[in-house]
């Protein structure tokens, strides 16, 4: 499949009076890895949450994998099975084992058989490097392990697009890399990815494009090399000087 995976078309969104997304025009090609960065409160989370309709937009349209999210009577569940999401706070289900967490959606949404779901789940755990924790409960895993399970859980639905909202921000520094490695592998395999992150090393190495947002607008977007070497706008420069100084 080649073409656009996600297209934002003059998207506007308000929370009450707060104008959080302003005239967003943005396309993400399939197979592309895009990093979204920007100051706190600039609307990054809101932007990616609109893609799988955890938030509704008030103006404009978003076309996800050929499907407009604003059509009335949209089959949300169907759209969401094609778009995986990984959250800052892992959000594993505490009353289920790692394996059950991963098998849940394939069995309940896609009606995959238990055997097949388990096979897929174990293969995914292998892929994210923790096959031995299949029967553990989330609370007994480290943050890095939990986040890798969360990625495996999203992948179990065989999504065409993956959304990441600050997947490493809640992690201790020594665990950040194990999660970034999994994300890097995923990118190398050709997954379409939209990642809100401040891991600029990851952006440099893996992203095809870096997008800078401020106050609900896309201020600047370019290839990582150009983005870091020669940012065009002052706001981007300011932001980068703060974030890269340490």
């Amino acid at each position: 499949m080649n073409g656009q995976a996600i297209e934002f078309k003059r998207v506007n969104k308000w929370f009450g009076k707060l104008h959080v997304l302003r005239d967003i025009d943005l396309s993400i090609a399939s197979g592309e890895v895009v990093v979204v960065c920007g100051p706190s409160g600039s609307g990054k989370s809101t932007l990616i949450r609109c893609v799988n309709v955890l938030e509704r937009i008030q103006q404009g349209d978003i076309v996800v994998l050929g499907q407009s999210v604003t059509v009335p009577g949209l089959n949300l569940a169907k759209l969401r099975t094609r778009v995986g999401m990984v959250f800052q706070q892992f959000n594993l289900f505490a009353h289920m084992t790692v394996l059950q967490n991963i098998m849940l959606a394939p069995m309940r949404v896609k009606r995959v058989s238990r055997d097949e779901a388990e096979r897929t789940a174990r293969a995914l755990l292998e892929r994210v490097g923790i096959p031995h924790r299949a029967d553990s409960y989330p609370a007994n895993l480290s943050g890095g392990q939990q986040q890798r399970v969360a990625i495996a859980r999203a992948l179990a639905m065989q999504p065409d697009v993956m959304l990441f909202d600050e997947p490493t921000s809640a992690l201790d520094p020594e665990m950040i890399n194990e999660v970034l490695e999994v994300m890097t592998d995923l990118a190398r395999d050709g997954m379409t990815m939209m990642c809100v992150t401040h891991e600029m090393g990851f952006a440099r190495r893996v992203a095809h494009r870096v997008i800078f947002m401020d106050e609900g607008q896309v201020i600047e977007q370019s290839e990582p090399e150009a983005f870091f070497a020669a940012p065009k706008s002052d706001r981007t420069k300011q932001f980068l000087s703060k974030i890269l100084s340490h």
């Binding site: 969401r80 959000n91 849940l104």
Partner: peptide, 8 residues
Amino acid sequence: EASLAMGL
């Protein structure tokens, strides 16, 4: 939200 995001 995580439950909805996986298609439930």
